[in-house]
Amino acid sequence: MSAMQFGIFTVGDVTPDPTTGREPSEAERIKATVAIARKAEEVGLDVFATGEHHNPPFTPSSPTTLLGFIAAQTQRMILSTSTTLITTNDPVKIAEDFSVLQHLADGRVDLMLGRGNTGPVYPWFGQDIRTALELTVEHYGLLRRLWREPVVDWSGEFRSPLQGFTLAPQPLDGVAPFVWHGSIRTPEVAELAAFYGDGFFANHIFWPASHTEQMVRLYRQRFEAHGHGSADQAIVGLGGQVFMRPNSQDAVAEFRPYFDNAPVYGHGPSLEEFTAQTPLTVGSPQQVIERTLGFRDYVGDYQRQLFLIDHAGLPLKTVLEQLDLLGEQVVPVLRKEFAVGRPDRVPDAPTHEQLVAARRESSATGAADVSPSAAGRQGEQA
């Protein structure tokens, strides 16, 4: 796998196709998501990630179930989440689910933790949205211990204490899945990622580039301040959103009705305004390449780029065509161009194999824990 990882993420929305009025069933949408993941591997992408939602019109309420099914039908691609709700999920259950998934997928697993953006979810799972940040910090502190300590004694504010708890199964090869912390607008999440030396994923869809630049800069500065390496060794991921056709005018004309009626940003700014003010790119593969390469100008060299391509009612056939364009015309160029001028000290995106190798090295030297930048450098030497 190259220094950078490229892939797609889905939010799993069930949305009527605005050009036909047809709405897929939940079963159709779930099966379509599996087909999209399989196609992503087929065209050479590195990562497939799913969101987590517990309310209509979304289907991915059980990400690890979906990813386990996909794991059985893929061989190479990393399976991840584009949000695992650290606030409303119990850390014990997160630890168990992802340990099982690690074993099933032979380590091709990581996850992105986030708070989610749907307020009603909190009481559904017995939590209070007013304590979201405190929940995030406490739950993640426990999750880290569950993956790293054979016996855990723990007490906190938001769940019952644990006495002599042992996680079963233990993480594959004794190495926890790599964790990204995802956020659109919360500096405290960037700080949490930096404190632990984890990855930081900027959603990079609905906000202008200047906002993403500010969040990533904060994370990099704090990563260095916490002693995990230099700022340019911090592990950064970006979201993105594209729609392509060989002719850019065709792309704009075809995508416009989907944009105008999208559940999240429909009936707001025009497509032209939105593409000018955010990283959404609608046009030719070459335009997507140029826009994406420009991300490095304001976040620096980074490790993971994920694209959203299957939302707003786009039919499966169209999404699979988007994947063909990504795999054949866009990602090969991005891999080559992003490697140009990339300093040797910038780590690769972490993989299970790199984390295992770095853990062995740290055990040999007596180091306490493995930083992601160390794991990435281990990958460069492998």
Score class of each variant (00 low, 15 high):
G7P: 03
I8H: 01
P16R: 11
E23V: 09
E28V: 04
V34L: 13
R38E: 15
K39Q: 15
E41H: 08
V43T: 07
L45M: 07
E52T: 03
H53Y: 13
H53A: 03
P60Y: 15
I70F: 05
A71M: 02
Q73D: 14
T74D: 04
M77I: 15
M77A: 10
N89P: 04
D97L: 00
D106K: 12
V109R: 03
D110Y: 10
T118R: 14
V121E: 14
P123M: 02
E138I: 12
V151G: 00
D153M: 05
D153G: 05
R159I: 10
L162M: 12
Q163F: 02
T166Q: 12
A168Y: 11
L172K: 09
D173P: 01
V175N: 09
A176P: 06
V179W: 02
P187Y: 04
E188N: 08
L192F: 02
A194I: 00
F195C: 01
Y196R: 04
F200G: 07
F201N: 12
A202D: 05
T212S: 12
T212F: 04
L218N: 12
Y219R: 07
Y219K: 07
R220I: 00
F223L: 07
I235C: 12
Q241I: 10
A253Y: 10
E254R: 15
G268L: 09
S270M: 06
F274S: 06
Q277M: 05
P279K: 07
G294W: 09
D297Q: 13
P315W: 02
L320R: 07
E321P: 01
L326C: 06
V330I: 06
G341T: 10
H352T: 00
Q354D: 13
A364W: 09
Q378S: 15
